[in-house]
Design a protein around this nucleic acid. Structure first.
Length: 595
DNA sequence: GCCGTTTTCGGCCCGACTGTTTTCAGTCG
């Protein structure tokens, strides 16, 4: 267990808390007018903390802060101060100089550090409310670079900020993007169209939708894009790209490039920014400058137009990576988390595919909160080609959900048997349970019942806000329980709604590794729990991963692609995922004696 | 402020778009 907060004065800070402070420092320094690279360093350090699979407090107590990517001597000293004293002198002095609330203005679209500084110093604007008042009262009108359009843009931006509810979940963005691809793909002259950006990298949440089309003439595609019925406002419309805001506040942009340059353009637009920086470094080492348009020999005069033959055009991303001497790097890995080095060494993870998943081990029926009968779920699973389906209804302690008690489980056997009869040898139907991990760490079902079930998924549902020591101990008890095969959605997070439980993940992962208990990547797009970074650390520790859709109805099996994507982003290979195993092997594993 | 099969110092992307500009500044990705 993590020793911390012995001094009750100092609140325990999460990785996100520390990252937020660093990010705010970056914003305030930028408003102050500090050199851009110092600002970028703070943001990079914040990113490094967010990508961490370990608790920063644990790393701190080991003296390893500088091992965090983007954290060097200076930032490490500042984090140390923050974690040790709960305060950071540098930050205290900074906010005395630059009002802390100015950082929130950075979220206003089309408002950046220069204007914020101007408004602050010349008009006393320090808050969002103050900005709105200043615009409305015309106080900003006479400032340099301001005009009527800029005023209107600020009011628009403020309204848009108030409307926007943060980032979209992958599961919401994907169907929307597919619809857009279909519509825009049908536009005359569009030869190809793809999603790009964080959506193509299958990040768990997406800020806006990036689309990229290949066409010789960009005008038609861009015109169709800004004329989409769901467009509320056109934010920009140029020769090669346009950006819009939909009626629901979602923002989207479309780039159009010639087909011969589609590869570099797609690579560029997919990012991540840091991955692209790595690639450009490699390109430069080869005497090439990489842009969205082409690979251009350094020194090549782009201005005179007479020497254009020297450009290397790439119609596909394969060609871009090949030109750099690298194998294709799948988009999900492009986060600058070591994938470029792995590509160089030809050591990229084996790619997990949806088709590798043969078993679904966490599913519900009408016996708890599912919408379909056991047989309906089984038939749907057969249709999708699964070899094994486990029905794992909730145990009773959930309160809101009508779950099963011991008698209910026994009664359910009859229907399981009937369903097995009906499906014959078309699928292996397992009788399992999703047993609740109660607030005290005990399981909501007698051991003798659990012992007889084919699969036991143990999940936390209630009291997720317990203090770290308590909720961690609770999970550890479940992990060590002899009959628990899989821990379902281990942190209990709901994207955009509920923060993950304050778990000591080091302890959780160590216990899972020691006992051979599998950890779930829950593919429900509201959860995606474990998150990619933890999944990656889990497989490094030899922990078995189970990817499950937690289906409450047949169509929920479609969530599988999100779970698989999360696993890929965690560098998980097929072998580490028990759902990919041959049936005999998986059944033997489920029937094993735990250590 | 970070980082290194290109460096312990000198890089760290730069082009598109908009609005205010008569030649450029700010923002964004």
């Amino acid at each position: 267990m993590n020793e911390q907060s012995e001094d009750a004065q100092i609140p325990s800070l999460t990785n996100k808390d520390v990252a937020d402070v660093l990010r705010r420092i970056g914003d305030l320094l930028q408003i102050k007018g500090e050199v851009i690279y110092k600002i970028l360093a703070y943001r990079k350090a914040a990113d490094g903390l967010m990508a961490l699979a370990r608790d920063v407090n644990a790393i701190h107590s080991e003296g390893g802060l500088e091992s965090i990517p983007g954290v060097g001597k200076a930032i490490a000293a500042k984090i140390d101060e923050l974690l040790t004293r709960g305060e950071m002198d540098f930050y205290t002095k900074l906010v005395a100089e630059v009002p802390e609330t100015l950082a929130e203005l950075m979220a206003v679209p089309d408002l950046g550090p220069k204007k914020i500084k101007l408004f602050w110093q010349e008009a006393g604007v320090t808050t969002l409310a103050g900005l709105e008042a200043a615009v409305t009262e015309g106080k900003l009108r006479e400032l340099p670079g301001m005009g009527p359009k800029s005023e209107a843009k600020l009011l628009d931006g403020l309204a848009s900020l108030a409307r926007r509810s943060g980032r979209m979940r992958l599961g919401d963005a994907t169907p929307l993007a597919r619809e857009l691809l279909e519509t825009l793909g049908a536009v005359e002259g569009v030869e190809r169209i793809e999603v790009a950006g964080s959506l193509r990298r299958m990040a768990e949440t997406v800020g806006d939708l990036d689309l990229l089309a290949a066409a010789e003439d960009s005008a038609a595609a861009l015109a169709a894009f800004v004329a989409l019925p769901r467009v509320a406002r056109v934010l920009g419309h140029g020769d090669t790209k346009a950006s819009v805001e939909f009626v629901d506040g979602t923002r989207a942009q479309l780039w159009v490039h010639p087909p011969a340059r589609f590869g570099t353009a797609l690579q560029y637009a997919t990012g991540s920014k840091d991955h692209n920086v790595r690639l450009r470094e490699i390109a430069l080492a080869k005497g090439l400058s990489l842009s969205e348009h082409a690979l251009t020999p350094v020194g090549h005069d782009k201005g005179d137009g007479t020497d254009g033959g020297a450009e290397i055009l790439c119609a596909s991303e394969d060609e871009v990576y090949a030109a750099l001497g690298l194998p294709f790097v799948p988009p999900e890995l492009r986060e600058d988390r070591g994938e470029v080095a792995a590509a160089k060494a030809d050591a990229l993870p084996k790619r997990l595919e949806v088709a590798h998943i043969r078993a679904q081990l966490h599913n519900h029926s009408t016996w708890s909160d599912g919408r379909s009968t056991i047989l309906e779920m089984a038939e749907a699973a057969i249709e999708r080609g699964f070899a094994i389906l486990a029905i794992t209804d909730h145990s009773g302690g959930l309160g809101i959900v009508q779950g099963l008690d011991a008698e209910g489980v026994i009664a359910q056997r009859v229907e399981i048997a009937a369903a097995r009869e009906a499906v014959g040898n078309r699928i292996v139907l397992l009788h399992g349970i999703e047993v609740d991990i109660l607030a005290d760490g005990s399981l909501d079902m007698p051991d003798e019942i659990l012992a007889e079930l084919d699969v036991v998924v143990a999940s936390p549902h209630v009291a997720l806000r317990q203090p770290r020591a308590q909720i961690t101990e609770r999970l550890l008890r479940a992990i060590r329980h002899p009959h628990v095969d899989i821990i379902g959605h281990p942190t209990g997070r709901l994207l955009g709604k509920r923060e993950p439980a304050d778990l000591d993940m080091d302890a959780v992962l160590a216990a899972a590794a020691e006992t051979g208990t599998a950890l779930e990547i829950n593919a429900n797009p509201h959860r995606l729990d474990l998150a990619d970074v933890y999944a990656r650390r889990a497989i490094e520790m030899g922990i078995a991963i189970s990817i499950n859709t937690d289906a409450h109805a047949p169509e929920h099996f479609d969530f599988l692609e999100y779970g698989v994507a999360t696993a890929r982003r965690g560098w998980v290979e097929p072998e580490s995922v028990i759902n990919t195993w041959a049936s005999e092997r998986l059944l033997a594993w489920l029937g094993r004696e735990k250590s």
